[in-house]
Nucleic acid binder design. Structure first.
Lengths: 354, 354
DNA sequence: CATTAGCACTCTTGTTGTTCAAGTGCTAAA
DNA sequence: TTTAGCACTTGAACAACAAGAGTGCTAATG
């Protein structure tokens, strides 16, 4: 019986088990009897706790890695914890919003091709592959719609560069449908054809004036617009095959590996490297070690090539790896992949023309 | 002057430098004078090589990690190697084919949503996120086109489940355009509405008979068709945020990390785990440690939830991490993400209905 | 009878010292 | 100019050892 299972443990044992699992989840270290005495819910001495822990161990809920370490939960311990001791957790608003927004996002044609190209580049070269779409200047919204979902939330729909972008909005107060309409009108009146930096304070104040009682809506919406614009033209960076790093003894070193992953996580530096260089677009670029100017890449080589469409550079694709890299294979591969992506884009163009 | 640079080194120095770089690229170890004497192009003793190496080092092309190790190329050494000593490498046919095929691939609606959902799941939970589309039975091609590109290559275009799939084909002999046409006709005659397992040997032989002199074309094309079908319905598995593993001391162990990455690489096992379980689709599933049956995951926890569309399970999304996992947060997050994806799919349905 | 204090015991971790193998630099001879 | 030989340097691997942390057990206490 399930309820049998639940009541197998005394309340104090449950408390101690829960405390141990919680502490272990938080720290990762085995937890000893002394540590638990600090827990306010547990009001007995370390010796008592030790006795209880010994019993929990013999029941199979705890184990000790070695004699002189603390206890860690066994799998059965985790199972009991998950089934009976778990608190409920509710996502924060910020988390929910992030979730909703990301599910709205649509990939562009180029993004989709880059994704495939990256996967094949990583596979063929056996190095971590990276692609970027550089910043596009002067991206603007050509039309706004505002869709009211309920009293507290709406969807901002923008036509930007021929593509529909949506942004989920939420307020703490009730927004009437009149307010929604008014805001949409104001946006189409004032904010069409503007780049992110065109949204100046005077402009925002003028919009607020026109909104009357609903002036407080303007600034968060403008923020959302600017975020969308910057996310759209703020060059996107994709990475594939981080695990390839592990294949090389150069990165078989956790400190180094972690630094590299931090670099991938942050993306800014890489974006700059790929975008900023005065590249000859028709050639594969090779940057070795300190030529990369970013400290973390002191011992790494970056090999990439620009992707062109209609004669213009629209991105770049390449790999990153140890300076000890199989240059001749990688250079040839990246050359071909970049050309392939460019060709795929061109063929799309011609399809559109017909 | 560039040519100056090229001739800064004597031919023997170039030979030795190239040999050192090649050897170091291959092994990763510092290379000593003795090893180089085995190179057939170098016909002098280790002592001579040592002298040359000492000179190359003083010129800045080599360095030694410590006195008693061999030499490794410096950045300048790599630079010289890349600029002047590199052999040309041509991609193999297999590599070129793989490249072309992967650039043709189109993502489905579900794939695109899953991609976004994965990214946000990995970010919110801070664990590695995984999604699967399970096998779809009975997927068939409803129409074939064959586009001749040149004497040796064609594009096989298939309409499968309402989606266009293409496959790049190449032969060693010249294929006339008549042959291409005949093949396309035969395919549409015999091979429409068949699943991969419907392609039996007798059928293939019958098709070959109708192809006359071009019978040798049938079997490779059928292979390509079957590959496409299996790739289409063979459940797809995506992974995001492998680097998150590094955040946890449990994986701060290169052996463990590598095993996990191998698991991600192979995908088969994971696919089975996600797909095979008799899940209650409305609940978040938690598998702890050995409950996972796959050896590598002995110390890991898998948390996932099914994604439904129109009442049917169309996939699953979840995370994998150490058994010491922040269960309450992860369970809540996965619950929300999976629901979000399901909802996004449903809303697409209703759009289509209108 | 449950709880607690105290102490001896166990086991890991980090440090130190030593040996071993690898590869160099230099000198003298060919 | 090239080669052989030898002394020297240095990191990696391994064993010995001290320190620290946490337990289990026993005896005392409310």
């Amino acid at each position: 019986m399930i309820s049998d299972n639940k009541n197998k443990l005394s309340d104090r044992k449950k408390l101690i088990l829960k405390a141990i699992v919680d502490a272990h989840i938080a720290n990762g270290d085995p937890v000893g009897s002394k540590l638990l005495t600090r827990n306010e819910l547990i009001s007995c001495s370390s010796a008592t706790i030790r006795n209880e822990m010994a019993e929990l161990e013999s029941m199979g809920y705890l184990e000790q890695p070695h004699t002189s370490a603390g206890r860690i939960p066994s799998e059965a311990g985790y199972r009991f914890y998950v089934d009976w001791l778990l608190d409920r957790y509710n996502l924060t608003r910020a988390e929910i919003d992030e979730l909703k927004n990301s599910l709205q996002k649509k990939q562009s044609e180029l993004d989709s091709i880059l994704q495939s190209a990256l996967a094949v580049a990583a596979k063929l070269t056996n190095y971590t592959a990276i692609s970027v779409r550089p910043k596009i200047e002067k991206i603007t919204v050509s039309r706004y719609e505002l869709m009211r979902l309920d009293d507290y939330s709406s969807m901002l729909i923008m036509l930007v560069g021929g593509v529909v972008k949506t942004k989920y909005l939420r307020s703490n107060t009730v927004i009437s449908s009149e307010a929604t309409h008014a805001l949409a009108m104001i946006l189409n009146m004032y904010a069409v054809g503007l780049t992110a930096s065109d949204f100046t304070m005077p402009l925002i104040m003028e919009m607020e004036q026109h909104m009357g009682n609903y002036d407080f809506l303007v600034s968060p919406v403008v923020k959302a617009i600017c975020m969308t614009l910057s996310e759209f033209d703020g060059g996107d960076l994709k990475i594939e095959g981080v695990n390839k790093l592990l294949s090389y003894p150069e990165f078989y070193n956790l400190e180094r590996l972690r630094e590299m992953l931090m670099l991938f996580e942050k993306k800014d530096d890489l974006l700059e490297i790929f975008s900023g260089k005065p590249t000859e677009p028709e050639k594969v670029q090779v940057y070795i070690g300190k030529e990369n100017l970013v400290k973390v890449m002191d011992n790494s080589t970056l090999i990439f090539k620009a992707i062109t469409n209609d004669g213009k550079t629209v991105g770049a694709i390449g790999v990153i790896g140890p300076t000890r890299m199989d240059y001749k294979r990688v250079i040839a591969t990246i050359d071909n992949v970049a050309n392939g992506v460019s060709a795929a884009l061109e063929s799309n163009n011609s399809k559109k023309d017909i």
